[in-house]
């Protein structure tokens, strides 16, 4: 059975102006899926519909056998702990240390009091260090996040998402603010996470070649509609132009 099942999903903020229309897809455990498409196509909105940071207008999303739109406040928190999210601008609390930021990922499993007082178990702290080590960041554990480079911050972001022990990782343009070196490090980490830990990854990307290289499957969005859904190897340049609505030869990658 598919881990994520999206059926006839539409989203509009104003009536008649659909940001997403009739999205259908199934995503399986351990898959590495890239979503590409022009700015404003609804990529970010779609990701946020999965963990219900945004409520959908029509259709249903089933994740791990649960209907996402039916969740109440408490079970929504539980649902979100199963989905890690990483962001273009890392969204770390820059005044706090790396290890503190990583442990923020555990709040979903905590009661209000435990969280407010910052009561983390030794196991959780140990796990945080394991993750940092895996991402090559353990030497920076006690540094404040504003002293890190972009690539390092993104690795902290990944560690924060992984400590949730998620089944799915949503990545909203994880390398859009990074240089090519750091981008490669981050994409390699995401790939190994998906392969070794069997965590499904859905990655929004602007770099078609990166999407093609790293992912098992590419989904193309344009104006809120799925215009391509297939294996990354099968992604032809004709399909790319269909996704971006561009003419042959007009994209920077050619």
């Amino acid at each position: 059975m598919a881990l994520l099942h999206v059926k006839d999903v539409s989203k509009h903020y104003e009536k008649g102006k659909n940001v997403l229309s009739d999205i259908n897809m199934e995503i399986f455990e351990g898959e590495f899926v890239s979503i590409i498409g022009p700015s404003g196509a609804g990529k970010s909105t779609f990701l946020r519909c999965i963990n219900r940071m945004i409520n959908i207008s029509e259709g249903d999303i089933h994740f791990d056998g649960i209907d996402v739109s039916s969740l109440n406040k408490k079970s929504l928190r539980k649902h979100r702990t199963k989905i890690g999210m990483i962001f273009q601008h890392y969204n770390l609390v820059s005044r706090l240390t790396v290890i503190e930021n990583v442990l923020h990922g555990r709040f979903g499993h905590k009661s209000t009091l435990q969280g407010v007082l910052g009561m983390f178990t030794e196991d959780e702290k140990m796990e945080a260090f394991h993750l940092l080590e895996k991402l090559g960041m353990s030497e920076h554990a006690y540094k404040r996040c504003d002293q890190l480079s972009g690539g390092q911050k993104q690795r902290v972001g990944i560690a924060r998402a992984l400590i949730q022990s998620p089944k799915l990782l949503l990545c909203d343009e994880p390398i859009a603010s990074l240089d090519p070196n750091a981008s490669k490090v981050i994409m390699d980490h995401l790939q190994s996470i998906s392969k070794e830990m069997n965590i499904t990854c859905i990655v929004n990307l602007h770099q078609v070649d990166v999407a093609r290289k790293y992912s098992d499957r590419v989904i193309g969005l344009n104006s809120g509609r799925v215009v391509y859904d297939g294996e990354s190897k099968a992604l032809s340049s004709k399909a790319i132009h269909a996704i971006y609505g561009s003419e042959a030869g007009s994209l920077i990658m050619e």
Binding site: M53, R77, H79, R80, F87, N91, L92, F107, G115, V116
Partner: peptide, 21 residues
């Protein structure tokens, strides 16, 4: 930064967690 709040909310943190941490 709205993003920090979003990131914590997306991980299942509640309002008090976000405020205090």
């Amino acid at each position: 930064d709205e993003g920090i709040i979003e990131a914590l909310r997306a991980s299942g943190a509640n309002w008090w967690h976000i405020v205090t941490h």
